[in-house]
Structures are given as structure tokens and as C-alpha cells.
Design a protein around this nucleic acid. Structure first.
Length: 341
DNA sequence: CCAGCGATCCGCCACG
DNA sequence: GCCGTGGCGGATCGCT
């Protein structure tokens, strides 16, 4: 039984911040957190001397690509060298990891490395808004969603800008260990556990020009996430945004990368998970609060996307927080695969 | 498991 | 012609 292994891939000249984000979240052991923490290795094609930001800093990278081969999660932070394509040996290692079933994540323009490795083909992905257009042009098989903080495609995750790496990293911790642990990490880093008040994944990012905060879609999103109990048909949502249903669907997809229905379901499930983890409310009540018509539909949709029942889910997390890292590996690796589509 | 039915999603096209 | 909008219809989804 061993800890979840995280390999952070560095190009020959790397960018400090994104690497620091990965190290801060996955590499720092926090005594108050009582689950077995990640085992982080920084690696590169040729281990040894490397630089950060040109001549700003020299560093020694201890591991080679074998760290990728041994990892459960591979993180590709910003590659900083936009001109030169990634090393073919690194791409091959990433491909191997992918076929092996490892989880891959990129921050910022690290998405280009994943795209070059081919693991984004046919998937949704995001990158820094500055590069979104180029990513889509160079890799037409990648469905680029430029306006989200991050995209979770299950085994392949991509974060948009620099700081949204924090959001994605916390999201992964949440998937692995639950909202409670993610919150502890966030608290220790003094960042909000979830941008936009506890809602998930498809929050709009700070994209420069579309920055009208009073945009109809955003208003509808904000309203619904604060009034999650209650049902919303497509027509209702369109009314909240003062738009026709057709236009609303269109604007919605642009702003969030998903469809209204899927977004709503995802919001409801995320909230339900939090309630399961943090409260003793009966399933019936949670179903009501999170806007599922009945406990039956709640259980059904929950099982459909998380592959467990609400009660099992709750029990798994309760077990985790009470048992001090005993037999955590099995449960956490099971939970690791839980994800919302 | 299948049928039936309404809701949703999205391509296509017309309008201003 | 361009762009944003919204109506229509068909494929598909998800519920009963």
C-alpha cells in the first residue's frame, strides 16, 4: 500500500508559479489532515540542472521520465517554451501513462503538451484564454472551452490560466479525498475552497472583454446556484436571462462549456455531495434541498454519475475522516474514480 | 427490457 | 456582406 504518486513534469526552462501550485497542494504535508498524503516527484526529460524563467533561477530536477511511468497522476504545468514543441520522449511517457489509466492534468499552456501527446483528442479541454484560439486551430480534434476555470474529463483535466491551477488542484483533492479535506487544504493556503461560493467546475473565468458581469447567462447561473432547490426548465432559465431558449442555450454553452441541463445536474450533485459529507441530513431531505424531485430520482442520478449510492458515499467519507490513514488506499483509490460527467 | 411521450439540444435558416 | 438573434424540426435523452 503506497501513497498516491504525483509526477510534475517540468520543461527544461519552467515557470515557477504553476509548479509551486502543484507542490503546494500535493507536496505539502499538513499535520491536521489525517489522510495519507500524495507522494510528489518533480521530473524532466534529462534530470539535473534546469532553469526557471531563463536566468532568473537555477534548479536541479531530481527525476527523469521514469517518475511519469510510476505515477498515478501526472501534472503538466505551464511549459513556458511556446516555440519549441515538447520533447518526443516526454510525449511518449505521457501517452504511456494515459493508456495505463493514470490521471493527467495540465495548467495553462501545459494543455499544448497534452494535446501534442494526443490525449485530448475528442475531449473537452481548456487553456489560458490567450492561447485558446491557437490550441483549437492547431489541434482541431480538441474541443476547446476557453471560458471555464477548468475542465474535468475524468482521466484528463485541464486548467485555464495560472491561478486556476489552484482551483483544479483543489478539485482533484476533492475528488480523491472529499470536500472536507479539500477545504482544509484551501484554508491552509488561504484561498477560497471553491470559487464562486461553493459551486463547481463550470464557473466563468475572468475573461477580459466579455467581462459584463450583468450578462444574462451569468445572472441566471448566479440565481440558480443560490436557489438550487426548485426546478428549472430550459424556458425558466431563459426567462431568468431575458433571452429566447435558443439563444440561451447558445450563450450558455459559450459561457460554461456545457448544456444547461448538465450544468444544473452537476450543481445539484456537487451540493448533494457536500451535504452528504458534512451533515447527517437524511437522503430525503438532501434530495429536497438540492432540487431533485424525489429521493428516488436523486439516488438514481447520483448512482449514474458517481457509481455509488448516496449512503455508501457518505459512509466512505465518514470512514475516511475517522480512521487514521488505516486502509485508506483501497477506499481512496475507489473514490478517486468517482467523477461527475 | 421496451414503448411512448415530453423535454432538451443543436443544426439550419430567416430576419433585422 | 456581417453579426446577433430566435424559430423550426429532428435526433436523442430521460422519465414513466
Amino acid at each position: 500500500m503506497s501513497a498516491h504518486r504525483v509526477a510534475v513534469f517540468l520543461p527544461a526552462d519552467f515557470s515557477l508559479f504553476e509548479v509551486a501550485v502543484a507542490v503546494e497542494v500535493f507536496g505539502v504535508r499538513r499535520p491536521e489532515i489525517e489522510v495519507e498524503w500524495y507522494d510528489v516527484k518533480l521530473c524532466t526529460v534529462e534530470p539535473g540542472p534546469a532553469t526557471a524563467h531563463g536566468d532568473l533561477l537555477g534548479a536541479i530536477v531530481p527525476h527523469g521520465l521514469e517518475a511519469i511511468d510510476a505515477a498515478d497522476t501526472v501534472i503538466v504545468p505551464r511549459c513556458a517554451t511556446q516555440e519549441s514543441p515538447a520533447d518526443e520522449r516526454a510525449l511518449a511517457a505521457i501517452r504511456r501513462a494515459h493508456f495505463r489509466g493514470a490521471r493527467l492534468a495540465s495548467f495553462c499552456d501545459g494543455a499544448f503538451v497534452l494535446a501534442a501527446a494526443g490525449v485530448l483528442d475528442g475531449r473537452k479541454a481548456t487553456t489560458h484564454w490567450k492561447y485558446a484560439e491557437r490550441l483549437a486551430a492547431e489541434y482541431p480534434r480538441v474541443q476547446v472551452s476557453p471560458e471555464v476555470l477548468y475542465v474535468d474529463e475524468g482521466q484528463v483535466l485541464t486548467a485555464a490560466g495560472t491561478a486556476s491551477g489552484v482551483d483544479l488542484a483543489l478539485h482533484m483533492v476533492r475528488a480523491d479525498h472529499g470536500a472536507h479535506v479539500a477545504r482544509q487544504v484551501a484554508r491552509s493556503m488561504v484561498v477560497p475552497p471553491h470559487r464562486d461560493g461553493g459551486q463547481a467546475q463550470f464557473v466563468m473565468s475572468a475573461v477580459p472583454d466579455g467581462g459584463e458581469t450583468e450578462d444574462g447567462v451569468h445572472r441566471a447561473l448566479a440565481y440558480m446556484s443560490h436557489h438550487l432547490d426548485s426546478e428549472y426548465s430550459l424556458t425558466d432559465m431563459a426567462k431568468l436571462a431575458f433571452m429566447s431558449t435558443r439563444n440561451f442555450s447558445r450563450r450558455f454553452r459559450e459561457a460554461t462549456g456545457t448544456t444547461p441541463g448538465r450544468w444544473l445536474l452537476h450543481q445539484r450533485l456537487t451540493r448533494a455531495r457536500e451535504l452528504l459529507e458534512e451533515t447527517d441530513l437524511p437522503i430525503e431531505r438532501i434530495a429536497q434541498i438540492t432540487g431533485f424531485g424525489s429521493a428516488v430520482t436523486f439516488r438514481q442520478r447520483f448512482a449514474q454519475s458517481l457509481k455509488t449510492s448516496p449512503t455508501t458515499y457518505r459512509r466512505a467519507f465518514r470512514g475516511l475522516s475517522e480512521a487514521n490513514s488505516v486502509s485508506l488506499e483501497d477506499e481512496s483509490s475507489e473514490l478517486r474514480t468517482l467523477r461527475v460527467v
